[in-house]
């Protein structure tokens, strides 16, 4: 997992609330056997509409999603996070996230940033007015900055630590490699092996 300290980029205004994981990525994409390549499934149903905001050329290359409240509700599929990351998003901003989605995103390295709805409204206005507007999300300082706007956000220390250090669950466990090796050395020899 990549380290996340601060990110600056352009943003996509998604003026919708209750975007559930089925809308983020429909179930048919779950049959795949890979961990990457889910960008084509992201918002698949909406992207059929040429007027959908993500289809507008001025929003190509965005890396920050500014979404309405209650983002990521529904099934616990981790594919929702993978699809957002594969598409190029590093950060999602919303006034409220579904718990499981927020947990999954922190584990995979996508930063979910909760900010007040009026901040979201100001960001929407700014990026719709000028799609080249750049937003900075600083995890160290816990702030979102856009022009004169500086909004603080909350994130639990553990998730922040993981993201700052680029540690996934496996990375953290491998940090205890000495303990694992010591345990292995004490395993009885009658325990079975497969090869």
């Amino acid at each position: 997992m990549e380290k996340f300290t601060s990110h600056t980029g352009t943003a996509l205004p998604l003026r919708r609330s209750n975007v559930d994981t089925d809308q983020i990525i429909p179930a048919v994409y779950l049959k795949r056997v890979t961990r990457t390549g889910f960008e084509d499934g992201l918002f698949a149903a909406w992207r059929n509409d040429p007027d959908f905001v993500a289809n507008k050329p001025e929003y190509a290359g965005v890396s920050i999603l500014v979404a309405g409240p209650d983002f990521g509700t529904g099934s616990s599929r981790e594919h929702a996070v993978w699809a957002l990351m594969d598409y190029g998003f590093k950060v999602v901003l919303s006034s409220r996230f579904a718990d499981i989605f927020r947990g999954n995103s922190g584990k995979a390295g996508l930063l979910s940033v909760p900010v007040e709805q009026d901040v979201i409204e100001q960001l929407w206005a700014a990026i719709e007015d000028d799609p080249t507007t750049r937003i900075t999300v600083d995890l160290e300082a816990r702030t979102v900055t856009c022009g004169d706007l500086v909004a603080p956000f909350q994130i639990d220390d553990y998730t922040r630590w993981r993201l700052l250090n680029g540690l996934d669950d496996i990375g953290i466990t491998l940090g205890n490699e000495a303990d694992i090796a010591a345990f292995e050395a004490t395993r009885p020899s009658f325990k079975p092996v497969t090869q």
Partner: peptide, 24 residues
């Protein structure tokens, strides 16, 4: 942190796990 003596795998729930290893 629990040690696992035997890990059984089959075709349905393992592909993305292996892919995750490969990526990392």
């Amino acid at each position: 942190l629990l040690y696992i003596d035997l890990h059984l795998i089959h075709e349905v729930t393992s592909p993305q796990a292996f892919d995750g290893l490969r990526l990392a």
